[in-house]
Structures are given as C-alpha cells and as structure tokens.
Amino acid sequence: MSDDAPDAAATAAPVTMVPSHVRLTYTVTAGRHLSSYLRALADRRIVGGRCPVCTKVYLPARGACPTCGVPADQPVEVADRGTVTTFCVIRIPFEAAPFPPPYVAVAILLDGADMPIFHLVRGIAPEEARMGMRVQARWVADDQLGPTLASIRWFELSGEPDAAYETYANHL
C-alpha cells in the first residue's frame, strides 16, 4: 500500500513535532440581563443593574445581587468614562492579540458603576500605566456599532487628574 509514497518522504527528516490543535465551538446564550447590557452598547450606552437593597450597580447587569439575594434588575445607565483600578501590560505576542505588544489592559470602574469592566487603554506608553488614571471610551464609528463590548474600540486618557486611591479602594 506504500506504492504511492512520495520519494521525498522517505528521505525527509524524522517527525519530532505534531500539530495538536484544540477547537471548541460553543454557542453562548447571554440571558435577559446581559442581553440588555449588550443591546445598549449598540446604542453607545452602558447599562448596569442596581440592587434595591445594597444599591450597588452591577455591570454588566445580572439577574440577582449575589450579596443580598434579591433581583438586581433596576436598569442604570453609567458613564462612558471612569477610573483605572488595576492594569496589566501585555508584552508577549499571541494569536488573536488585538494589537502588537506592548499594550495596556485595564480594569475600569465606570462612573456610576460598582463593578469594573475589562478593556484596553491606548495612547499611553506602558510605563505610564498606573492605578487611578481617568479614562474615556473611544467608540467605534456608527456603522460598526453592535451588541458587543467591541463597540468601544478602546479607552483613552480623559485629561482629568488621577483619582484618589480612596475613591476606588473598595472596588479592587
């Protein structure tokens, strides 16, 4: 059965490595509250959900307050600017990376929210990244808006002075 072996194969180097690709194809269902958060993003709005007991604003909205155990579905629109609570400088390239490294990934506490979201900050050198930076969303063009956090292209410095640590210390 080896008659059709290419001549080159017999003299090629021994096999020492093999591709071992893992590919898992899911369908993610967002649920009612995450869906309303995503739909608002297509409209350049960022909507969380407030717990009626502890008054915390969850972002994205979730069905219930995990602390109080009650529905937390009062919709609250929060600002598209906020404070960087933590950050990470990505220096290692990987497939599907959004930009060539280095770039800065951050947790941002948007004004009016009690939960940080994760996004990228552009327009600063990695050495400038710091906790307390005030940043502003840069949205995509109208025809690129959709029900996804990718409707925000990235965040940039807002020009405001850094926030004092005490203002976000309870949100780390």
Partner: peptide, 12 residues
C-alpha cells in the same frame, strides 16, 4: 435573548 457563536481555540 442574544446568543452568538463562541470558539475557543488553542493551536498547540
């Protein structure tokens, strides 16, 4: 409710 494909892929 929104749903979307989500592919997790590792090219080891």
């Amino acid at each position: 409710v929104l749903s979307a494909p989500y592919v997790l892929e590792y090219t080891y």
